[in-house]
Simulated assay, not measured.
Amino acid sequence: MRSQLNAVEDMAGNIRTSQSIGCMGPVIARTETIRKSLEPVAYECARLFVVRKGSAVLSSELGKQSVHVGDVVLLSTNTVCGIEPEDGVTITEIYMDTNYVIDQIFWRHVRFLSDRFDAKKFISDICVETPQIIHLDLDEKHAEMLTSWLDELGFLTKNDEYFSNFNRIQALWFLVADVIMPFKTVTPTQTHISYCQQSALPRHCQLKPLREEAREAAKLLRMHPACRWTLSVLAAKTHMSVSQLVRMFVHSYGKTPSKYLTMVRVEKLATLLRETDTPIKAAMRQVGWHSRGHASQLFKEISGLTPLEYRRLSLQVPGRSQSGH
């Protein structure tokens, strides 16, 4: 593998001069040669990098760790890590949006995860401390394939047609992950959690027609999110007992009416923040939230941003004007 990875020196980009990724997208890849030490920094995304030429010393909360050609370094979100090259090191670094990773973990373990909240907790439960260094032991054929995928991924994620190449970018990431992730270390309890404590199969695996009563309940929540809904009120509106309502709703939508309502409120608040100039607190009341702190917490859990951050981001879209807070 070393001879194959060494061949990419001429294909590497310029020496890194800033630590900004400089592109939007759920998966970004950059190949670069580093000749000067990079101070420890953290990103609000998951990262991994493959050492393709040379060697370096990583600086992190775990201390100093050496990496060499063929090594893969996994970095979880907000992991502080610096790089000290030894006479230069060429790496391909892949940045992955946190929500994109959570979504993949959710579908990978959908047999026992009910939603993305469970997926986030599951990730924290199974992950060991990072940086985690993986020593790949690939034959020449698989090393060549990995090198080719990394090069193409880097090219496609830095040109001006990122989203027109989105399907190919995803396919390349899955190919790379399929080679690397089997070597990843997880906590010893993962197997027990995954396969010995499964709950009933979530709705996503059942693919059964929605019950009319559940559809009616969901319709009410969507049409009137600002109402002070309780299970008793919703059950009465749909002519069911509370236990029947919860059982039927979870069976149909894979989540409780309460979690479904939270999702609806987040979606509607996002629309108000994006498409109107309604002050944030007033927008929260319009969707049924009267505590700004509680609303901000729930909104961030689902969207990854606070309402204020979301509005500021929406203001970057041409044609939007500054809104009140």
Rank of each mutant, 00 (worst) to 15 (best):
S76N: 15
A56N: 06
C45V: 10
G70D: 01
V51G: 08
E44I: 04
A46V: 13
V72E: 01
G70I: 07
K53L: 15
V73M: 01
Y43V: 04
G54A: 03
T77A: 07
L48C: 10
H68M: 08
S76T: 13
K64S: 04
G63Y: 02
S66F: 04
T79L: 03
G54F: 10
K64F: 13
V67G: 06
V69L: 07
S60F: 05
V57I: 12
S76C: 07
L74F: 15
L48T: 05
C45H: 09
N78P: 00
K53D: 10
D71G: 03
H68E: 13
K64H: 06
S59Y: 02
Y43L: 08
V72M: 01
V51W: 06
G63Q: 06
H68P: 00
L48Y: 13
Q65I: 09
L75R: 01
K64D: 04
N78W: 11
G70P: 09
L74Y: 06
S55H: 06
A56M: 12
S76D: 12
L58F: 02
L48W: 12
T79D: 03
G70C: 05
V69A: 11
D71N: 14
R52E: 15
F49G: 03
L58G: 03
L75A: 04
V72P: 02
T79K: 04
V50D: 08
N78L: 05
S66Y: 12
S55N: 01
L62C: 04
L48K: 07
A56W: 04
G63W: 04
V73E: 01
V50N: 06
V67R: 07
E44Y: 03
V57T: 14
K64Y: 06
V51D: 03
L75E: 04
H68W: 10
E61N: 08
S60G: 08
V73P: 00
S59H: 08
E61L: 11
V50A: 07
S59F: 13
D71R: 14
A56S: 08
V72I: 08
C45T: 06
Y43E: 05
E44G: 07
F49P: 10
V67W: 00
G54L: 12
N78T: 00
A56Q: 02
V50T: 11
S59K: 11
V73Y: 01
L75F: 00
G54Y: 07
V67T: 02
S76I: 05
F49K: 08
F49S: 03
G70S: 05
G54T: 15
V51P: 12
L75H: 01
S59T: 15
N78E: 02
E61F: 15
V73N: 00
K64T: 05
S60H: 05
G63S: 11
L62Q: 09
Q65N: 05
S60M: 10
Q65P: 04
G54E: 14
H68Y: 13
L58M: 02
L74S: 00
A56R: 11
E44L: 09
V72T: 10
Q65M: 10
F49V: 05
L74T: 01
S59Q: 15
L62F: 01
